[in-house]
Design a protein around this nucleic acid. Structure first.
Lengths: 341, 341
DNA sequence: CTGTTAGCGCTTTCAC
DNA sequence: GTGAAAGCGCTAACAG
């Protein structure tokens, strides 16, 4: 591997000139700069990562902690990890994966050894131990997800409360007043995984504000069957359904409703909200308020990069406003169904 | 952050003694060693990663390339990435995630800058560009998956051919001779994703050896419906079904068969083979020949660590023998169904 | 605008 | 069994 020495020799300049020509941290006469750049590319020179880290006291690496619970959606996880990685690359950072049993120890280790310049925390529970850890470490850390106590933490997430409100308001505008929510399995809720709770509570709160009774069902066995039956028992005239649930459950909702003789959207309007999957290929595609991994991750990484690079302090919590995608699963009560082109 | 200097001072020894006491690379009088260890833990000392990397010319980092195709199973991906990471940690390595559009450039970059000591390649296609890249780089690289041309590469994977044979032989032993295969979507096959091809070809070859006609169907829309119909058209007396397919398809097989009045395992015995998901919670759990991420990843990482640490040359291809898990979806023709406890 | 040089914090000879 | 010291390849003062 070529070193900066080789490039300097090849270009007939000193190593500091090479360093500055490549980093742009001070102005270099264009002609010498070109000679350096030439020499560098001729030799296929790339700075030795460790040497640069040591000298600059910066690793250009972000650690990502993504514990794998039995009930977490690995697929969503991967997408988040990947999006964090992509966003990090645009800022010149690579990402290190911290695992499972090792999350706390891994966070401590990567901080204490200066392995990473900052940490991105994924899949945050309401009472996530990583929250206290982050508070005790004074190490640049950004949470994607919101723990119960955000004091002193930097958090980014979709505004799930607003998403729940948007879902309800959209249904109400379409004349749907008998609304139910299919949430996540009780197992997930009991773990106090943060966003299912926030969504459900936001949903309940806004329904109460509007004076709506709005039953909530927690699916079992990754199917919508029981949850839908439960909602229909509580709300026999159900005409609006909000799904903040897994892809398996969501994809079986139309069939579950059909078993009770209800069709989408004629009888029941459906909105999937705060979900990472696409409903595009469902039998009936659902209107969606997406949990956009790219959006959250890119905002989170931008913030982290700003903290590390420009050592700015960041806002405590950044909520990403929900967006709405229409796919035809919500029509006004009794209205004719229009099909897209 | 405490440095090795601090520890040396605290323990009243030289820094080289500290280094050796901690690395164990030469013998230190137990009493001084204990003093050093004490001082280190008292100060919460952890070696500065970059400094160690530079001096030792080793980053203790493996890069992991895991491109995300539109048709790849993100969930399986995450599990592999995590398992690689866990295995790497047991050897004292961390893992860096290399993304998507960036895989080739990322591999080059992490090699040229000595960012990583080795590379683990996931989700390998038959004609994966990363194969040629690896051949041209002389950088410690292990493929989890097997490209068409393995010359000069180190590859690890489940023995899919053996898995296909095992599936067929098991069905035949149970008196099932009219066997079909539900494979992956044509999109995946056309991309020449390696293992679906190897499984299908192994399946076809062994069926031919046994003189069995064995139709293959490629699902569409992530459902078993059409594929099952197709197999029944080709093989009206179908009594054995091998699934090397995605979880969505597999989970809808029992229902698809029911639509044609066939039950599992009475009419049709079913084996899921070379799959990462569990069929435990299916309506009818299927016998499974798992594609065990942990097994593949741990073998692959062991090999990579051996190459890097002990600079051993590795065997070209390591095939992991299939294992069989019984869940009651295969019973001899006409036999009574026995239920597990 | 460019060059010289002092580190960054470790590992590892080399000397005792 | 221990210590002194020479780097590892860069970055960033400092000096022109």
């Amino acid at each position: 591997m070529a070193t900066i020495q080789d490039v300097a020799r090849e270009a007939g300049v000193s190593i500091s000139t090479v360093s500055y020509a490549l980093s742009g941290k001070r102005s270099i006469k264009p002609s010498t700069r070109d000679r350096v750049l030439d020499a560098a590319s001729r030799l296929g020179y790339l700075p030795h990562a460790s040497a640069r880290m040591l000298a600059a006291n910066r690793s250009q690496i972000f650690a990502v902690t993504a514990p794998l619970h039995t009930d977490t959606d690995h697929s969503a996880h991967m997408v988040f990890a990947m999006e964090v990685t992509k966003a990090a690359r645009t800022h010149g950072y690579d990402t290190l994966l911290l695992v499972d049993d090792d999350v706390s120890e891994g966070m401590r280790r990567s901080a204490a050894s200066s392995l990473a310049d900052g940490i991105v925390v994924l899949d945050v529970d309401a009472h996530d131990p990583r929250a206290d850890l982050a508070r005790s470490m004074t190490y640049p850390t950004v949470f994607i997800g919101i723990p119960a106590d955000t004091t002193g933490l930097v958090c980014v997430d979709l505004d799930f409360e607003a998403a729940a409100r948007l879902a309800i308001d959209t249904l109400v505008s379409a004349g749907r007043q008998r609304i139910g929510l299919v949430s996540h399995p009780l197992e997930t809720m009991q773990r106090e995984s943060n966003f299912p709770l926030r969504f459900r509570d936001g949903f309940a709160a806004h329904a109460a504000e509007l004076g709506l009774e709005a039953p909530v069902a927690y699916p079992v066995e990754h199917r919508a069957h029981e949850a839908v039956a439960q909602l229909l028992a509580a709300q026999p005239d159900l005409d609006g359904l909000v799904l903040n649930t897994s892809v398996d459950v969501a994809s079986s909702v139309t069939a579950a409703l059909a078993e009770h003789g209800r069709s989408v959207p004629q009888d029941v309007a459906v909105i999937a909200a705060g979900v990472t999957f696409s409903t595009e290929r469902f039998a009936v595609p659902f209107d969606t308020i997406p949990l956009d991994a790219r959006a959250s991750c890119s905002v989170a990484v931008d913030i982290l990069a700003r903290i590390v690079d420009d050592n700015l302090t960041a806002p405590e919590t950044t909520l990403i406003p929900p967006t709405y995608i229409t796919r035809g699963s919500v029509s006004p009560t009794g209205a004719a169904v229009t099909t897209g082109t």
